[in-house]
Structures are given as C-alpha cells and as structure tokens.
C-alpha cells in the first residue's frame, strides 16, 4: 500500500515548453536524464545538468551526459556539493525554468527542499526514483539524520537508540521518521528486516 505522506515519483518527463531545464541527477538517475533528452538536441542545448556519480551507481555516466551536449554539465564529487551547486544555479534562475531530480530518494528530497527554498512549488518538480531503496531517516528523539537505512529497526547513528522506521515521510526534512522501538520492552528487539535495499 502506498504511504500517504510519501511523495510519488512519477518519472522524469521533458517539459517541452520550459525555457530552461535545470537537472539534478545522482548515480543511476543519470539514466533517466539520458532517456528524456535522447534525440532532443534543442532541449539539451538549454539544459544545465548537475550530476554526482554517487553511491548508488556502479558506473560513472558523466561521459554519456556530456554527449547530450547540454548547455552546461557540472560533475560533482558528492550529494552535498551537487546541492551547493544547484543552489547557486537556482539563485539565478527565472520562471520558465523547470527543475528535474533523479536518483535515490534522499537526493530527490534534498533537491525538492532546495527548490522550495527558492520559491519552486514541489508539485512542479519532475522526479524519478532510481537506484537503491535505502531511506534517509530522522531520529524523532535527537533529530539526527541517518543516511542509507536499509533495515528496520536500526541504531540511530547519533544517539544510539534502536529505531523503528515509521511509514511517514517529511518533504521538508527529506526523511522518514525513526521512533524508538524497545522502550516498552527494554532490551527486547523485533527481528531486523531488510526492507529498503
């Protein structure tokens, strides 16, 4: 059953009417970008792509992205640096610019948060989830973020509590909610389930 608070990522779609395309891709997200610009030289010529090969990809797609001949391609070493670059580009962008995000969920979430900060409504951002299903989880108790959570329960990387991953997603935090699992039964943990590979 879909999670009501979790965003739906319908897949990238080229908005032919956009004046500019601002594309953020992580890891396997590059494949989704390649797919929408395939054979669309005009659109690619007005695209700025920010790409980080990222943890979820076995392969670096930078060369193939360069072959699209985008207006600009920024290959960044990490999600964090990609977001910093994206923020710089958003700061100078005008209406008519369409924002795209593809990659792991945590990365998409950060792109949406950047868009929001610059006045872009999250509903107008095209998104595609590629690669790992790992979740970014915020501990509701200490507010610390743990990246790449693949199992529940897991141990908070900040406060050390055993957290259960609740099916509740915050767009603003780009994270699921982690809640302590064993406080009613100290020391008794449910079996660990690998759910989000």
């Amino acid at each position: 059953m879909p999670i009501k608070s979790r965003p739906i990522y319908p897949g990238l779609k080229l908005d032919q009417r956009a004046r500019r395309h601002l594309v953020a891709a992580e890891g396997e997200g590059a494949l989704a970008v390649l797919a929408i610009f395939e054979g669309k030289g005009d659109a690619a010529a007005s695209a700025t792509i920010v790409y980080t090969p990222g943890g979820s990809a076995g392969e670096d797609h930078a060369e193939k992205l360069a072959d699209l001949k985008p207006d600009a391609l920024h290959v960044m070493p990490s999600q964090e640096t990609a977001i910093v670059r994206l923020n710089g580009l958003l700061g100078n962008a005008a209406m008519g610019t369409r924002l795209y995000a593809a990659g792991v969920e945590g990365f998409i979430g950060k792109v949406i948060a950047s868009g929001l900060e610059h006045g872009v409504d999250h509903q107008s951002i095209y998104t595609e989830h590629c690669g790992s299903l790992a979740r970014r989880v915020q501990c509701v108790h200490c507010k610390g973020m743990t990246e790449n959570v693949t199992a529940t329960p897991f141990t908070c990387s900040h406060c050390g509590l055993n957290l259960f991953v609740r099916d509740h997603y915050s767009r603003r935090l780009a994270a699921f909610q982690g809640v302590v699992v064993d406080c009613e039964t100290p020391g008794e943990l449910p079996e660990i389930e690998e759910l989000y590979r």
Partner: peptide, 10 residues
C-alpha cells in the same frame, strides 16, 4: 503562461 514554461501551480 504555459507557453512561457510556467507550471500550473503558479
């Protein structure tokens, strides 16, 4: 507006 690439949300 749509022709100018504006999203419906705006």
């Amino acid at each position: 507006g749509r022709e100018a690439g504006w999203p419906d949300e705006n």
